[in-house]
Amino acid sequence: MIKISLEKSRVSKFTTTYLIVGIEIIIALLSGLTLIALGAGGGAWILGGIAAGALVFYFYHLYNNQSKPNRNSRKFGQIIVGLTVGFSLKHSNLLTIYSQLHIFLFLTLFLLFSGGIIGYIYSRIEKTDLLTAMLATVPGNIGIMASIAADYGRNISLVSLVQLIRFTAIIIVIPIVANVSNPHDISAIIHSVTENLFFIDLNYLSLLFLLLFITLSTVKIGSYLKIPVAGFFCSIIVGAGFDSLLNLLPFLSHIDFNLPPLFNLIGQILLGITIGEYWGMNPKLGRLTVAYASVPVAMTFLAGFISAGIAMLIAPWDWLTCLLVTSPGGSPEMILISLALHHNVEIVTAGHLVRLMTINICLPGLVSLICYLERRSTKNQDSVADQLKTISPKSAMP
């Protein structure tokens, strides 16, 4: 009886989870089309996902206050977006990118250094410990930063809040700046989106299933090897090399396989839904907390623009490319915006992948260094306090 009840509970939870995701996707599709009509451009589907996730999860959280954001949505979103980026790179010449590797590394280290300074300032403003402040301000993945905060017993909600505000603000602002830099015909974009949205070539369905099987297997291996954001990084590799793999098979003629348009769109929406669900969990925030959190976010924006200016001086890229490469937002989202604008996807992808790898490699050392500095500071404070205790009033008199 207990086994049956547990199985029913799991089935019920599974059904509820995917029913919520289905509702979120439908609302996100409608929101995305509306945002495109208003001129949101490259970030419309992600923003639609954020709006849908926040709205649906807010009401669901009132019903079940133990519910948590669905991490699988973001994982699947990263896989789909990674495949989309990979397919866009399959005919590109990436050898020229290697000559600019030092530029990518310099810009990444500049952003990390800026994040350290901003974190120190924020720790003073918010009166919190240095590790919490650093995890909140370093431009990285929301989930990773929050999980590190949990491992070290720090303020998870504060880390998530600052990262969430930064993440959302950048996704809203960068597409607006990009659309100003690249004027476009809104009616033409809506027509191009809706024209082939639900078109699926039935002959390619078996290849699509093969692609998903290879991708999921590669992502699993990548996760086992602890590759940073394996769902995104490994999917790019599979997408870029899938056509070459098909051409190696003797029983298949030359095939130019492309992902269905709806497939790509769903991936963007899933990325936005996870962010929206985090907002849906915390709809009521103190004004002072938000005001304090906005300070490091504004400073991170400033650091990103300064970094873009430096990139203009040392790299042969235009302003929009520099902005997309140095933008301290989510890597999949920034690459998607460049993809939507058909604007130097190879450079933007390379820049964000280098930054992603560098941050994840440096993060353990950075956390260890901060913990060491905190222990040393605490030890010095305790030493001073002990010395003051040992001084008697008589010995202190002149």
Rank of each mutant, 00 (worst) to 15 (best):
I190C: 05
S192R: 13
Y58W: 13
P364F: 00
N141S: 13
L245M: 14
I172Y: 05
G304P: 02
Y152F: 15
L248F: 07
T194N: 08
V325I: 10
Y60H: 15
P69T: 10
M281G: 08
N155Q: 04
I117F: 15
Q163Y: 08
V297K: 10
D256R: 12
G49T: 07
I269C: 07
V345W: 04
I172M: 11
D151E: 13
A315L: 11
V238G: 06
F209S: 14
L341D: 00
N196L: 04
T108W: 02
M397Q: 09
A293M: 02
L197S: 09
A385V: 14
N247C: 01
V295Y: 11
L225S: 09
L225E: 04
N72K: 10
N196W: 03
L95M: 10
L62F: 12
F263R: 01
V238W: 06
A303D: 09
G330T: 09
P296G: 14
I171R: 00
L202P: 03
L212S: 08
N182W: 01
F113S: 15
F232L: 12
A385T: 15
G82K: 12
G309S: 09
F57Q: 10
V162M: 09
V229N: 11
L366W: 04
A340C: 03
V367F: 03
N258P: 02
A315Y: 13
F14E: 06
S5C: 08
I121G: 05
I200C: 01
V162G: 08
N282I: 11
L158C: 07
Y60P: 01
I200S: 02
G119H: 01
I27K: 13
I2T: 12
A315V: 13
L288S: 13
P296V: 03
T358C: 07
F209T: 13
A315T: 14
E346L: 10
E333H: 01
G280S: 11
I80E: 03
V11F: 12
G49R: 00
S31V: 05
S206T: 07
V345G: 08
T215E: 07
I27N: 12
I2E: 11
S395V: 06
P175R: 01
T16Q: 13
E7Y: 09
I125N: 08
I189C: 05
G153E: 12
T289V: 11
L341S: 04
A188C: 05
Y60R: 15
I170E: 02
I170K: 06
S235Y: 06
I255M: 08
I273W: 02
V138H: 08
L89F: 04
L202K: 14
G222E: 05
I190V: 10
A240N: 12
H342N: 14
F305N: 00
G276Y: 11
L95Y: 11
G32N: 05
I121V: 15
S99F: 08
P69K: 15
L35F: 15
N182D: 08
L158N: 11
G77T: 04
A385F: 09
Q100M: 10
I4P: 03
P69L: 07
A230W: 07
V138S: 10
L19T: 08
L353D: 00
